[in-house]
Design a protein around this nucleic acid. Sequence first.
DNA 1: TTAATAGGCCTAGAAAAACTGAGTCTTGCT
DNA 2: AGCAAGACTCAGTTTTTCTAGGCCTATTAA
Lengths: 291, 291
Amino acid sequence: MSVAPPRPSLPPLNALRAFESAARLGGFKQAAGELNVTAGAVAQHIKFLEAWCCAPLFERRAKGVSLTVLGQSVLADFERAFDAVGFASQRLRALGAPKNVNIAALPSVAQLLVVAWLPAMRDAVQGVQVSVTAMEEAPNLAREPFDLSLFFELNPKQSLTGLDALIPVASPSLVAGFTDLEAFMSARHISDQSWAQDWPRWFEAVFPDQIYSGSGPSYSLFSMAVEEAKSGAGILMAHRSLVAPLLKSGALVVAMDRPVPIDLALVLERSPISGESPVVDALVEVIETLV
Amino acid sequence: MSVAPPRPSLPPLNALRAFESAARLGGFKQAAGELNVTAGAVAQHIKFLEAWCCAPLFERRAKGVSLTVLGQSVLADFERAFDAVGFASQRLRALGAPKNVNIAALPSVAQLLVVAWLPAMRDAVQGVQVSVTAMEEAPNLAREPFDLSLFFELNPKQSLTGLDALIPVASPSLVAGFTDLEAFMSARHISDQSWAQDWPRWFEAVFPDQIYSGSGPSYSLFSMAVEEAKSGAGILMAHRSLVAPLLKSGALVVAMDRPVPIDLALVLERSPISGESPVVDALVEVIETLV
DNA sequence: TTAATAGGCCTAGAAAAACTGAGTCTTGCT
DNA sequence: AGCAAGACTCAGTTTTTCTAGGCCTATTAA
């Protein structure tokens, strides 16, 4: 008999979040990625939650998991709840530190475009601290602490640049030596590892009746490939929107003026709360001017 | 330079919950009570949150705290968010373990009324585990894992019993000896510590032109006072709704039939999600029959 | 003015929670 | 059968969170 008797307690919030994430993404591994922990940690949270509510939430399949009926019937509630938590947190951050702005961008976008815009940005919003975080996947702006995101999307309704195009680029000195197609094809063909298919794709579109046979190094970071191309190491198959500033400055030139349209486009998204922030408004305007 | 670069992270959920609680209740101490931790723990959460959003959320006053403008402007968002979390958790519990029902009640209500109802309850919903938790304050049924609560409220719109009344009760043998008012007044006047004013209050209402001068022991638990009264130790100034079953059974009798109405009434509340539960429906019916 | 009090703050140490890492198990695919 | 993917488990570790107790300040009462 205790003085302050133990009450039946609520489930730990972190376990609830793990459930929501795993249920929404359809797997512990994906949830682990989103939450920046290991899959084992997620499994433990879920297990705890299942013990708390005395019922299984997932059916364990060989690959991945699937929700039980119970899991399905509460998922929507938890999505709503954590959306609300994320929204409130975003708002707290934005109101509390209006002089800090976080931008999320694909690594290549961050290094090739955003960096170039930063001076103008600083100019437009003085005294504001603009942070840029590179990541592979666009964050959920309703949940994570970013004000703006810049990612490629498939056939978006709205985009900064319109649909993108593949275009081969190289250093001016290298291009000067391309007297014929053979010279072009036998040069080193630089590419980005995550866009390794761009060279064959472009070639097939431009020379539909021929087989692509070029070769060359690939880099895990697009900006490394760009550096190599700038130093004359070969021809880079680039996304036009990413190298536009370099083409403008002359650091790179088009190696063969046959752009091939692709269905990706660069999209700028604003967090739901950014409407309240004149600072973000100003930054968006700078971006739209410079792009 | 790390492979998985650290992202700006969301604030810890527990810190957000501490903020919400402290802001809603208007103090760290109250929040500590609600969260079942010490005030220091709450203070640390708040401090962390203030560091995270780079701005103070509370103004520290000598007694208690008050929200800053920033705190005020995000409180509503967090209330909504944690209401949603609580609702989802409640629903998970109710759907996952529909055979467990939790009732929250004032200690005196639990010991004098609910205990008496339990056999009928068990009968009405067989195979269901009914747990009763005694507490001083009504829990927030939208947040905490209870299906029903039974507490006294000031002038409620709806109640189980209507407005309550103070009534002096004692064991039959003791009452038999009360030949006049003096005998009544010089008997031991038992009371509950948290309702210590009930004796003077009753006396003033019944004998407006006299000064109350009785005395006797008080107990921190109303049910202890009841036990004492049953064993003939004195006259207990009781709330009529609480001793009704004992008056009915004859264990206690009215010592002077002058009930004094008070503006409290016993209220039964259901959690927002209990509408989905036929088990809770059945229990409510049992209670309304027996009260 | 002084004392008493209530509430928040701080810090060290303790307790609890969460996380990792490595190995296991299951199952679907080739 | 062999492989791969994903989830599970468990021990050990790291990190977070909590408590206890003393301190400080402002209000209230005397």
